[in-house]
């Protein structure tokens, strides 16, 4: 105890350098305030009013926006849709990317080609790509349905059948995140010391499954955690595909799309602010939860 006390006392800077220190942290503090803190406070302020964009006056409504949200069938549906979308995109986007990374990692001369090929969707704008997907999945014109009918099945109306809307968009979402996740996994694979694989081989890990379970998977822990968190966040933020492909018809709204409709189409700024806070809370709880839960397991 005494040691700690001495340490703290000696670590405290002399009084005259405090103002100078404050000057140095000021730019960062100002930026942080302007970009994150003040907007969130303003947002929280809006969320307890019935403010509509352009209106001259407004009233405080307390928590009424939040209670209204959970009674709103559109919002509940958007929540369920987003959950379904995330439930497909997160596992598929993480594990397929891992599989591809393992395959690409084994290539020598063609590795650069595969990396580029899988990474291209990440660099493309999703709005443009969604239009391409619309064509690909078109019931009569699209090559996907041509292939399905050629194989002897009935054509599938991917973007017409309400039950298929979210899964179809989830497939596009998976396609979009694969390349980024694959590159992350490749970086993780490269960082695994060769000695560990060799030690495992000598220890008797003959099958690739054994080597994967003994070395690769545990050593990829930190990478996997990062990939899961970023994929979850991008899954919850799904917006472009909905805006371009379905515009929320047949009950295919997602959280962000519902929020956009309220805020910018219907000008319900107060209500949209409340939805935004709910969205923020969900993303924050999920990512902090995942990080805390997994962090203990992946860092040795």
């Amino acid at each position: 105890m005494t040691l700690t006390a001495t340490f703290e006392a000696s670590a405290r800077p002399p009084a005259r350098s405090v103002p100078r220190g404050l000057v140095f942290v000021l730019p960062a503090v100002l930026l942080l305030l302007a970009i994150y803190i003040v907007p969130i406070i303003v947002l929280a302020g809006f969320s307890i009013t019935d403010y509509r964009l352009g209106a001259m006056n407004w009233d405080f409504v307390g928590a009424r926006n939040f209670t209204a949200a959970f009674a709103d069938p559109v919002f509940i549906r958007a929540l369920a849709n987003t959950a379904l979308y995330a439930a497909i995109v997160i596992p598929a986007g993480v594990f397929i990317a891992l599989g591809i990374a393992l395959l690409v990692y084994g290539r020598k001369s063609s590795r650069a080609f595969w990396e580029t090929a899988y990474f291209l969707p990440v660099t493309a704008t999703l709005v443009a790509m969604a239009t391409v997907w619309q064509f690909l999945l078109h019931p009569s014109l699209g090559p996907v349905n041509t292939a399905i009918t050629w194989a002897g099945f009935d054509p599938v109306s991917f973007l017409g059948n309400p039950a298929l809307l979210i899964p179809t968009m989830a497939l596009i979402g998976v396609w979009q995140v694969l390349g980024f996740n694959m590159v992350l996994f490749l970086a993780g694979l490269t960082a695994i010391p060769r000695d560990l694989h060799e030690a495992a081989r000598i220890d008797g890990a003959k099958s690739p499954i054994d080597r994967f379970l003994t070395v690769t998977w545990p050593m990829l822990g930190p990478t996997t955690m990062f990939v899961v968190v970023t994929t979850s966040i991008s899954a919850f933020k799904v917006f472009e595909t909905v805006a371009v492909l379905t515009k929320g018809r047949s009950g295919s709204e997602t959280l962000l799309y519902a929020l956009y409709l309220e805020g910018f189409e219907y000008s319900n700024t107060g209500y949209a602010a409340a939805l935004t806070l709910i969205f923020l809370a969900i993303v924050l709880i999920l990512s902090i939860g995942q990080t805390l839960r997994m962090d203990r397991k992946v860092h040795y």
């Binding site: 010391p193 000695d195 560990l196 060799e198 030690a199 495992a200 081989r201 000598i202 220890d203 008797g204 890990a205 003959k206 003994t214 070395v215 545990p218």
Partner: peptide, 16 residues
């Protein structure tokens, strides 16, 4: 290597 029944100690120790 698994079928040679040898044991190896690496410079880096290569512990899991």
């Amino acid at each position: 290597p698994a079928d040679r029944n040898l044991a190896m100690v690496f410079q880096s120790y290569a512990l899991y």
